[in-house]
Simulated assay, not measured.
Amino acid sequence: MNPIERALGILLLLTGGKLVTATTLAERFEVSLRTIYRDIDRLLALGVPVDAERGAEGGYRLPRDYMQPPVALTRNETAALLTALATVRGIRTIPLMDDLQAAERKLIATLPKAVLTLLGQAERVIGVEPVPIDIFHAETKAKTTDAWQAALDGFMLGLLDNCRVRFDHHNPSRTAPRAHDVEPCGILYDRNLWYLAGRSVETDEMKLYRADRVRNIEVSGLRFQPDPSFDIKHLLGGAWLSQAMRRWEKEGPIAQIRVTAEQSKRLAQDWYYRHVIFTPAPDGNVMISIPNAEAINLFPLIRWLGAGAELIEPAHLRKALAAELSEMARVHRDPAL
Rank of each mutant, 00 (worst) to 15 (best):
N76H: 14
R266V: 09
A150Y: 04
G9R: 06
T140P: 01
L14Q: 12
L160G: 10
A307M: 04
V219L: 11
G47L: 05
L25P: 02
D65I: 10
I296H: 14
S289N: 10
I108S: 02
A197Q: 08
Y272F: 15
I91M: 13
G252Y: 13
H169Y: 14
E327R: 09
M97T: 12
E262C: 05
V20R: 06
A336L: 14
G198D: 03
Y209V: 01
P172S: 12
G16E: 09
W248I: 13
M245I: 09
T203W: 07
I290V: 08
K233N: 15
L325G: 01
R38W: 04
P49L: 05
L13T: 01
R89K: 10
H234R: 15
K141I: 13
A122Q: 01
V182M: 09
L107S: 02
G59W: 11
R191E: 15
L236N: 14
G284M: 09
G158Q: 02
L160W: 13
A72P: 13
I254V: 15
G154K: 05
L25A: 10
T260K: 03
M156Q: 09
T93C: 14
A261S: 15
I4W: 13
L73R: 12
L96N: 03
P132K: 08
W304V: 07
A239P: 07
L321C: 09
A309V: 00
L62W: 05
W194Y: 09
L116N: 09
T87C: 10
P132R: 10
R247W: 11
Y60A: 00
I135E: 13
D334V: 00
A239Q: 10
D231M: 06
M156K: 04
G58T: 01
E183T: 02
L305K: 05
I40Y: 06
A329S: 12
K18F: 15
Q149Y: 04
K141D: 11
S229L: 09
F278K: 14
L62I: 08
A211F: 06
G198A: 04
F29H: 06
T93Y: 03
G58Q: 00
R61A: 03
A103M: 11
P112Y: 03
L62C: 00
S264H: 05
V214Q: 01
I254P: 12
A52S: 13
R213Q: 00
C185N: 10
S326L: 11
V115I: 15
D190R: 13
W194F: 08
W240E: 04
G127C: 09
A84N: 12
Q101V: 09
D153S: 00
A293G: 01
G306V: 00
A86L: 08
K233C: 15
A336I: 14
L193V: 08
E139Y: 06
Y273G: 02
H180M: 11
L298R: 10
L107Y: 02
V115T: 14
S229W: 03
P184E: 01
R166G: 15
C185T: 07
I290C: 02
G55S: 08
T21A: 09
V276C: 14
A197G: 07
L62V: 02
P112F: 03
R166S: 11
A84K: 10
H170F: 14
I133L: 08
E104D: 12
L118Y: 03
T74L: 06
